[in-house]
């Protein structure tokens, strides 16, 4: 009874940790050398041609002055970076809330039995509603609407309502991701758990969810990349986050370079995350190919 998942889930203690973040040369181990040369050459050619097209275009000097001005970049960097901290705070708080709430919604949606119909219906209505409404509208309605209710004790901070909106919308997405994970676990797992004497809840908690969650980590991180970028939308409530700070600089100087600085900051955050997701996907694939990954 101690650790049921260890008996039922052979993937739990897989040892292989080797990863290849970017495999330039394709998959085969032997074709590595030649493949790398071809990859390098074709990469150089493609990028040189693209660069040549852009750099020789008649409007390039104007575009360069407007988007890639080194002085403006240096000038705007400190304020944009300081504002980036707001985005980081927002998505860190939202991510924790989303991970918990989405799991609750997914489990509720999977509840069996007619008694739970109202709960199931609520979960379905919630996900349909918040996945369907554009995030910016949710931010607007909650950020300006809720404080207007003038209720005692209800926060009016745009930062607060921004996080609430992000959490509501992304919980709807992530709940669906969780649900897909739960449904991907073969029913025989639950049957086995029940036959061992586990209750339905215990079976879910110790057998189904551990497998389900592990399977959905890549799509989950994918949603979080989206979330990190979408924190910029909270700017409509007046919060001076990265994109807004960049916009202020751009409007002040009529130079868009600050937006490129903001984009670079987001990339610094999302690219490592994307590579990490790729790594997890690749690891999962190799495990399955190896038939259990022992």
């Amino acid at each position: 009874m101690t650790t049921p998942q260890a008996q039922l889930d052979p993937e739990a203690f897989s040892g292989s940790r080797r990863s290849r973040l970017l495999s330039f040369a394709g998959k085969g181990r032997h074709s590595g050398r030649r493949g790398a040369v071809v990859a390098t050459l074709s990469t150089i050619i493609v990028f040189s041609v693209l660069a040549a097209i852009v750099l020789t275009s008649p409007g390039w000097p104007k575009v360069q002055a407007a988007f890639f001005d080194w002085t403006a970049a240096k000038d705007s960097f400190p304020t944009v970076l300081r504002a980036f901290w707001i985005n980081i705070q927002m998505f860190l708080i939202a991510e924790v809330l989303i991970l918990i709430l989405a799991l609750v919604v997914a489990v509720v949606r999977g509840l069996k039995g007619p008694v739970f119909f109202p709960l199931r219906a609520m979960a379905i209505i919630y996900t349909d509603l918040f996945r369907g409404v554009p995030l910016i509208l949710v931010i607007y309605v909650l950020g300006f609407g809720m404080p207007a209710l003038d209720l005692q004790g209800l926060p009016i901070s745009p930062f607060f309502w921004g996080i609430v909106s992000l959490t509501l919308v992304y919980t709807a997405y992530v709940a669906e991701v969780y649900r897909a994970g739960i449904e991907s676990v073969h029913p025989s797992q639950m049957a086995a758990a029940r036959s061992l004497g586990l209750s339905r809840w215990q079976g879910l908690r110790f057998v189904v969810l551990p497998q389900a969650v592990r399977r959905v980590i890549p799509p989950l991180l994918n949603d979080f990349i989206g979330l990190q970028k979408d924190t910029a939308l909270v700017a409509v409530l007046g919060v001076v986050e990265t994109v807004r700070a960049a916009g202020i600089y751009a409007a002040d100087t009529f130079n868009y370079t600050s937006y490129v600085v903001a984009a670079a900051l987001f990339l610094l955050l999302t690219i490592p995350m994307a590579r990490f997701t790729d790594h997890l996907i690749e690891r999962g694939r190799r495990r399955r190919m190896a038939g259990g990954g022992r």
Binding site: F144, P147, A148, I156, S157, P158, A235, V236, L237, G238, V239, V240, R244, G247, I248
Partner: peptide, 21 residues
């Protein structure tokens, strides 16, 4: 306190009425 910056004066107006600024 850092200023709040809105897309339009209409949004700033909502924030003023809400007591956010």
């Amino acid at each position: 306190q850092a200023a709040s910056v809105y897309d339009s004066n209409n949004d700033a107006k909502s924030a003023l009425q809400n007591g956010q600024i």
